[in-house]
Write a protein that binds this DNA or RNA. Structure first.
Length: 484
RNA sequence: GGCGGUAUCGUCUAGGGGACUAGGACGGGGCCCUCUCAAGGCCCAAACACGGGUUCGAAUCCCGUUACCGCUACCA
């Protein structure tokens, strides 16, 4: 096999980068990382009406976030119009394509008639039978035409890297002699793709399953052009929970949405990689280098996969735990600052404390957004009490008040403000009062954090510090006094 | 309608003729740990779409049926 692998991801810039596209890009990238070669990016912007600059940017941003760096310059398909026309001309010169002067209305009529007869429509190639003189005369008189590919007899087969051999009888490919050049002189998708893949010296076309029926057309085009064929690999679709193509109706579909939900790019990559590929063993949580090391085309599966948000969140939690506080800090800081909980400078000024907080929160969070939410009691001066928690934990207001009072006195008298002495203090208090330690911890937790779920109570006390802890308890007592 | 693709627990999948009383993971249920919540550990429920072959033997190979998906444009 000559030359290095050259693969490309070729999205059309008609929206954001959705998870299916990201998965396709990822597999192309993984193949190159694993087997060597180049991963190229081509923007298929020949449909001017639907293509936007903003969505091109969104695609770049999505790929960059995932860490899927591409090689060489980005190719914009729209810039290659001249080559596309030249390739059409080559086909025309070689007699592999011909001008068709049938109007849209005529074709529609034929199509309708065929349907009425219950038959599949196929172009009757009447224009292929026009004499050279007649064609010249019509062209000279400025009669509009499209260029059609002259479909050969026989059948077209390729050995798909994921599906194995796939064969199409040529008579069943599309509507017969398909159009390759519009009457306005612009190329149709299949021609543009082939022309570009040849120019980019692509050796493996790895794309979504929805392209399998385009493949025989493209193979025929390569052959008519006298060019060597690349290999093909068609990845199964990514569907929503109802088994239908993933769409907005299913919730977040853009990779950017997951970034904003606090999903880690490495978790997204890990999750996406497992959608349609399996390493073979029982390993699931992997770093990107581990995925690359294990990646193999043999592990690609043929069947469509359903995107399961629950599993993504679980996986994100796994990756969160894998990262150090230092690695997580920039991500969490962004959220903390955006939520107006603290400034970057404030966090930097007590770095050790901040990192300790991150370590405490990361194990009980599934996203970085969760961490920001859970960090609130430690960053704000005042806290709100969760209504349900108050109703349950401080049900007996007078009793709770009295208990908090005793707790505060005990804590205020603690020999030092560290986890172990604080634990000894509170357990001694519980014993003295003849109650289980939990009976003291929960009301205290609510006073300290406003909620019933938090890290261990001694860690909370330490994170809050002596002054703030005692102040919180005092505030809770005032709250209870007012309410009773 | 035609053509193509796919078919293992609810979901992601392992499995490529005997190692399958079908394994792992998410999710669900239970227990343990425990100051709560997570994390972690242990356990439970849960699948080879159906029908024919081939074979001593089929989740694995072949054919058919069914279901689902895709394509069937002067969209990409």
């Amino acid at each position: 096999m000559p030359g290095p692998n050259r693969l490309r991801f070729a999205p059309s810039p008609t929206g954001y980068l959705h998870v299916g596209g990201a998965r396709t890009a990822l597999f192309n990238w993984l193949f190159v990382q694993r087997y060597g070669g180049q991963f190229l990016l081509r923007i298929e912007d020949t449909d001017k009406a639907r293509s936007t600059e903003a969505s091109t940017r969104a695609i770049f941003e999505g790929l960059e976030w995932l860490g899927l760096e591409w090689d060489e310059e980005v190719v914009h398909q729209g810039a290659n119009l001249e080559r596309h026309r030249t390739d059409v001309q080559r086909l025309l010169d070689a007699g592999k394509a011909y001008r068709c002067f049938c109007t849209q209305a005529e074709i529609d009529e034929q199509r309708k008639a065929a349907e009425a007869r219950g038959e599949a429509f196929r172009y009757d190639r009447r224009c292929a039978r026009l004499s050279a003189d007649e064609v010249a005369r019509r062209v000279a008189s400025d009669m509009p035409f499209v260029v059609r590919f002259a479909m050969p007899e026989g059948e077209t087969t390729w050995d798909d890297l994921v599906h194995g051999p796939i064969t199409f009888p040529n008579k069943d490919i599309g509507e017969g002699d398909f159009i390759i050049l519009r009457s306005d002189g612009t190329p149709i998708y299949n021609l543009a793709v082939v022309s570009d893949d040849i120019a980019m010296r692509i050796t493996l076309v790895m794309r979504g399953d929805d392209h399998v029926s385009n493949t025989p057309k493209q193979i025929l085009l390569y052959e008519a052009l006298g060019e060597a064929l690349p290999q093909f690999a068609h990845l199964p679709n990514v569907n929503g929970p109802d088994g239908k193509k993933l769409s907005k109706r299913h919730g977040a579909t853009a990779v950017g949405d997951y970034q904003h939900m606090g999903i880690l790019p490495q978790a997204m990559v890990n999750f996406l990689a497992l959608l349609g590929w399996a390493p073979g063993g029982d390993i699931e949580v992997m770093t990107v280098p581990e995925i690359i090391e294990r990646f193999s085309v043999d592990g690609l599966s043929k069947n469509a996969a359903v995107f399961d948000l629950k599993k993504l969140e679980w996986m994100n939690g796994q990756h969160l735990s894998l990262l150090s506080a230092a690695e997580l800090a920039p991500l969490v800081t962004r959220g903390v600052v955006a939520a107006g909980l603290a400034t970057e400078a404030e966090l930097a000024s007590r770095r050790d404390w901040y990192f300790a907080l991150i370590d405490l929160l990361k194990v009980r969070a599934r996203t970085t957004d969760d961490m920001v939410r859970q960090a609130i009691p430690y960053l704000r001066d005042d806290i709100d009490y969760d209504a349900d928690a108050v109703a349950k934990t401080w049900k007996d207001r007078a009793g709770a008040q009295e208990l908090l009072h005793a707790t505060r006195d005990a804590l205020a008298a603690a020999p030092s403000w560290e986890a172990q002495p604080l634990e000894d203090t509170l357990r001694t208090l519980a014993e003295a009062r003849g109650v289980g330690a939990g009976k003291i911890f929960q009301p205290l937790r609510l006073a300290l954090t406003g909620v019933t779920a938090s890290p261990g109570i001694f860690d909370v006390l330490v994170m809050l510090g002596r002054d703030r802890s005692l102040a919180r308890i005092a505030a809770a007592m005032r709250f209870l006094a007012e309410k009773s």
